[in-house]
């Protein structure tokens, strides 16, 4: 008999296991719903840019590739991370912002060819950079998302 099966035999342990599972499932569902909200926002921004900006000189439409990259970025956010607000940019990028107040924020601009341009302002710190997004969100960005919210 291993330890886990022994624990699972106890009615109290089984109750705790069920409760924990239920809480975790509700948490996952809530996160999935809010993540869907972010994905919907990306889609709306993509459509709005296509409708509003294509006739204005100097402004570019948001490409399907940029929209898909933004969606993959949001889908790749680890469970428990806050979701960003989403806006379009006149240069055809999609902007994701994690904001607590004007001096605690991270802004990531998603451009063509999976390119990310980002800058954070956290008190007097002003880190910035650019990188390519392939499958995983760079650890640096996850670190600064957490920092924005005081983690």
């Amino acid at each position: 008999m291993n330890h886990s099966s022994f624990v699972g035999m106890s009615p109290t342990a089984q109750f705790l296991e069920r409760t924990q599972g239920s809480i975790l499932e509700r948490y996952r569902q809530a996160f999935t719903v809010s993540r869907q909200d972010s994905l919907d926002s990306i889609f709306e921004v993509w459509q709005a840019a296509d409708e509003e900006w294509k006739v204005v000189e100097g402004e570019q439409v948001i490409s399907e590739n940029v929209m898909e990259t933004a969606c993959r970025f949001v889908q790749t956010l680890p469970l428990g991370f806050r979701l960003p607000s989403v806006t379009g940019e006149p240069d055809g990028h999609i902007n994701l912002e994690w904001y607590r107040n004007p001096r605690n924020l991270l802004t990531v601009s998603i451009g063509p060819e999976n390119r990310l341009y980002w800058a954070a302002l956290i008190g007097s710190e002003d880190p910035r950079g650019s990188c390519r997004f392939v499958d995983r969100i760079p650890k640096t960005l996850l670190y600064y998302i957490a920092r924005v919210f005081g983690a």
Binding site: L105, T107, S109, G111, Y117, W118, A119, A120, L121, D126, R128, G129, S130
Partner: peptide, 11 residues
């Protein structure tokens, strides 16, 4: 560079 522009814009 856009990341430098964003950094200044945040400030």
């Amino acid at each position: 560079k856009k990341e430098d522009q964003i950094s200044l814009a945040t400030k």
